[in-house]
């Protein structure tokens, strides 16, 4: 009985010898995930997912000597867009960043209205505070102040939330720009410094979008180059099991063509004779011709031999 198997060898430039492959080094390498899909559509992972759902880094388990797949299976290779790639290849992230910059610019343009609201809320609070404590709750003065406070909060968040999204407080990547944004926001409260601070905040936001876009393009280019330098080799072999009388043939592997996996014609794959014993078709023809010729002159030769 014969068993047909596919031997998958994953070749990567960072790999060492075939028997002891190097562990994945780059984000891209860690991003590879290999799985086999059988004829029923069921997936069988043959490597660890590089990025887990919680974003924790994981390790691709390289297959030292290749993985074995059923011939009726499909091999899928995934390079996930995940936290490992930090969304660099995701256009929607750039669109979101651009929207945040636009929102910030819009909020800064309306900062006059915000400051006006703040002043009105301050005046309303003074009026409210002038009431005796027992009469404050549910008073018209409280209603007026709460309405202005609510509007003030909305206007303030319209300005602060884009800043928080553009330069997250906990991000070490944009730590310097966030510190600068904090400084500029503080200057917004000063009449003299406000125009310069608004201009500087707008510039900072545009710079953030440009830098992100440049990083995204660079990563895309790096990814293309990295993918070009990697190959996946798929080979198919017949593995002979052999019987008791065929002990010599047991577990021998012979390369074969597998439709859809290689570009060889079905009939061109043949066993290579390592000892030169098997004859090619032209050799067999020449041998047959020689044999026929031998049979033709053999009777004559016998008569000649008998006469002598």
């Amino acid at each position: 009985m014969k068993r047909l198997a596919l031997i998958i060898a994953i070749l990567a430039s960072a790999c060492g010898s075939t028997g002891d492959r190097a562990r994945p080094q780059t984000e891209l390498e860690r991003g590879f995930f290999f799985q086999e899909r059988d004829r029923h559509g069921k997936d069988h992972p043959i490597s660890a997912r590089s990025v887990k759902s919680d974003g924790a880094p994981a390790v691709v388990e390289r297959i030292a000597h290749g993985a074995t797949l059923d011939v009726n299976s499909t091999l899928t290779i995934q390079v996930p867009r995940s936290s490992a790639t930090k969304g660099w290849m995701d256009d929607s992230a750039l669109e979101d960043l651009t929207k945040q910059a636009t929102d910030l610019s819009r909020a800064l343009a309306a900062i006059g209205a915000y400051l006006d609201l703040e002043a009105k809320a301050d005046i309303a609070f003074v009026r409210y505070n002038a009431l005796p404590r027992a009469r404050r709750n549910d008073s018209p003065e409280q209603d007026a102040f709460l309405a202005l406070k609510n509007q003030r909060g909305a206007a303030e968040l319209a300005m602060l939330d884009p800043i928080r999204n553009l330069w997250p407080a906990q991000s070490s990547e944009v730590r310097g720009d966030r510190a600068e944004a904090e400084r500029l926001v503080k200057l917004l409260g000063n009449d003299t410094d406000r125009p310069g601070a608004i201009s500087a905040l707008n510039d900072l936001a545009q710079s953030r979008v440009r830098n992100w876009s440049r990083q995204a393009r660079q990563l895309e280019e790096d990814t293309k180059q990295a993918l070009k330098s990697r190959r996946v080799r798929i080979e198919a072999f017949v593995v002979t099991r052999g019987g008791p009388e065929q002990e010599h043939a047991k577990n021998q592997t012979h390369a074969v063509h597998v439709e859809g996996y290689d570009n060889l014609d079905a009939d061109t794959v043949q066993l290579i004779d390592p000892y030169g014993v098997n004859l090619t078709a032209p050799e067999r023809e020449r041998l047959a011709a020689a044999a026929a010729a031998s049979r033709n002159w053999l009777p004559g030769w016998s008569k000649f031999d008998a006469a002598n």
Partner: peptide, 17 residues
């Protein structure tokens, strides 16, 4: 401490009806 983060959480409180 981040003045922006502190102002943002206070502003969320101001938004409550």
């Amino acid at each position: 401490p981040s003045p922006i983060e502190i102002r943002a959480v206070l502003a969320r409180g101001d938004l409550l009806p």
